[in-house]
Amino acid sequence: MTQAASVDMTRINKFYGPFQALRDVSLHIPPGKVTCLIGPSGSGKSTLLRCINFLERYDAGEIRIDGQLIGYDTPGGRLMSGRRLREMRRDIGMVFQQFNLWPHMTALQNVAEGLERVRGLPRAEAEAQARAALDKVGLGDKTANHPARLSGGQQQRVAIARAIAMQPRVMLFDEPTSALDPELVGEVLAVMKQLAAEGMTMVVVTHEMGFAAHVADRVAFMERGELVAAGTPAEIFANPRDERIRAFLHSYHERNAFEV
């Protein structure tokens, strides 16, 4: 696999008009590790994730992928060129909550598209690599299916294949299992665990506390646009020092507990 990259975020601020979505967020994402972003909805964790590949423009601060600033030529300077941004995005895979597969293309075409248009591979080579990526997520037999003919879990695995086929150095997951029926969550998490075991740098926004607790190397808790705490799963889940984290986990447990 290509070298896993680190991500360094320093004092990130982001505004939507007068609303401040991110306040001075600083977070180090170590290479080859899984970092989960958790917190209540509206806390800014998805926004932060989307800033990493500059789908969302941050207004102040710096985000560096292996030391390379993304989005701007210099900190606080002009926007970087589209070409340069695309080059950086090649190294950053992204998986969305709603899968966002292209519905008019087969699973194979969805994965091969980037290999052809971005990496410039000839059709046959792109399709061979796409097939390999689909094999890896366990969908080698579904290459000819259009997204409408795949379950949600299968669609999300195609979306993961689309991202890993580009051989990224960082993978971003934006609530990858939130749109799935409960019984389909497992197959997607299994593929993510496999990726983690291979040493991919992963940043995962998730409500799957089990995944965060068992797979993540680091967990960061956000609330109201602020990073409240970051640490090992044990530090965050077992004995959280901050009252806000305790309240969040408490309501989570209450929602998910049931007795018969």
Binding site: N53, L55, M94, W102, H104, V118, A163
Partner: peptide, 25 residues
């Protein structure tokens, strides 16, 4: 919009996004 964003995230150039994804859909 997510389907356009997905294409941008992969790094597909804008003209190709128009031709291959936006226009057909």
């Amino acid at each position: 919009h997510g389907q356009i964003e997905a294409a941008r995230a992969v790094g597909i150039p804008e003209p190709s996004i128009v031709r291959r994804i936006l226009l057909p859909l």
